[in-house]
Write a protein that binds this DNA or RNA. Structure first.
Lengths: 264, 264
DNA sequence: GTAATAGTGTCTGTGAGACATTATGGC
DNA sequence: GCCATAATGTCTCACAGACACTATTAC
């Protein structure tokens, strides 16, 4: 079965068959470009941040945008996302988690041409050593809360909405999966993990209750037996456990009986 | 700002600028077709069913596939999904809910050419009156549990995976949203709603506990004050409430203390 | 009568949230 | 001394699951 389709040689079986065939003719499909855009999130200095690159070309020149680009003709979407991230954010910036977010395809989202973008969500820890590209003048992490404000950039295209969707996906992922550990490097403390939850969700959590919840969730973290000095005593260190889904979930939204408690 | 981009006239600012520009040249984007495919689910006769259409053309001729087709050049993705559903499944088959599932873009998923498909999930009640197209020989609902078995069809392309993803999304949506009501026509009984949950999740639920849970969830259902004869007594009728998100959720997965209870 | 379902009431185990307490070490 | 944090323990309230019970109607 070759790639060159010969569908036009098939005999129509009923009335609208020819129209059906015409719609599937490879030479007749609408010219739509397919790109990938990556929302790469990390937690640094108590802020949830997203990687943005400064555009050097028309349109939205000098505005900040998500790293991304065209999908290769024989390239899987996931591979395209990883490649674009490596090209635009530095080879070493491998996210610990990368998942598809959704597709964005409003007809007017790019003024040059019709572009359908498949957005990805990436999570990675804030690496202490600077990575190639990420701290260059044209690629840096921005605080998510600063986007759209005076202190932050104005995003190109519909990337503000994509970032918002990615942040919301990440917030939700912390509840039901162990992906919070993707934001910290091993080994980490329970407090490190709590600060991830607090930063991503933007709320304060009870240290005592959080600790009990994390340790009672099977497979979330594994004690290393080592300790680290916090400046005020010693604290135990942990590694990622084998679990990916959390049972029970760690809910950010308090249960019904807690609607009166505003602070954690 | 015309659609014909003149990016090649921009002067390169640094070394890889020309390569960057070339990648954004509209005449150079890879020839990838964009389609939509719709996983339209309904509950009929105690079965979770999905709408499939029989393919009349190469490839996978006579196999069953999801309704779908090419996205128009100036057409929004959501609009394309609604249009294809109307064209292939009958004009009146308006789903009560339609949301994007995700994009599928493996390079070899269509043998004819590179196709990226944006899949949608649609939910609708089992309408008592037959609709145009849906009961025709080339478009019908199939039980999801029969797919891939002797009693069911073999799906074209990667549509079996898309259906599986859609079903899983629907199962998850019942937990956190009021979308279960999208499967029933108003007015409905609590038992009607329970049968939706039982059918979609494939498990039995405690009628008494389910009733208490539904009625204690704000905005899920609203009593009409009317009653309907069930053959064995009378039962109250309800309408959809205003809530879309459920607080608290109605979890299919039992909580941690219930891991020993296998039946409901 | 039996069988099946709608609807109400009640008990128990679990866990989330809140709070108290102790230990440690920097200031 | 004070203060912040790690870590443990305990109390209470709400709810999920389980079960009992009544009422109704078909058979």
């Amino acid at each position: 079965m070759s790639h060159g389709a010969r569908v036009t040689s098939v005999q129509p079986r009923h009335d609208d068959e020819s129209a059906f065939l015409r719609r599937y003719d490879p030479r007749a499909f609408p010219p739509i470009a397919v790109t990938v855009d990556i929302v790469l999130l990390t937690v640094r200095q108590g802020q949830l941040t997203v990687l943005l690159v400064r555009r050097g070309t028309h349109p939205h020149r000098d505005r900040w945008a998500l790293p991304g680009g065209f999908v290769g003709e024989h390239e899987d979407l996931d591979d395209a996302a990883r490649r674009e991230l490596a090209e635009e954010a530095g080879v070493d910036a491998r996210p610990r988690h990368l998942e598809q977010l959704r597709a964005y395809g409003a007809p007017d989202r790019d003024p040059r041409m019709r572009v359908v973008s498949v957005a990805y969500l990436g999570l990675m820890p804030d690496l202490p050593r600077p990575r190639a590209g990420t701290d260059a003048a044209d690629a840096r992490f921005w605080s998510v809360s600063d986007l759209g404000t005076e202190d932050g950039p104005t995003l190109a295209f519909d990337h503000d909405r994509i970032v918002a969707d990615g942040v919301e996906r990440a917030r939700s992922r912390l509840e039901y999966t162990s992906l919070a550990t993707s934001f910290v490097e091993e080994p980490f403390t329970i407090a490190d993990l709590r600060r991830v939850y607090e930063t991503v969700w933007g709320i304060a959590l009870h240290p005592a209750n959080f600790r009990r919840k994390v340790l009672s969730t099977d497979g979330l973290v594994v004690p290393t037996g080592q300790e680290r000095s916090t400046g005020r005593g010693w604290t135990q260190l942990y590694r990622r456990g084998g679990a990916t889904q959390l049972h029970p979930p760690i809910l950010r939204q308090a249960r019904t009986n807690a609607h009166l408690t505003l602070d954690g």
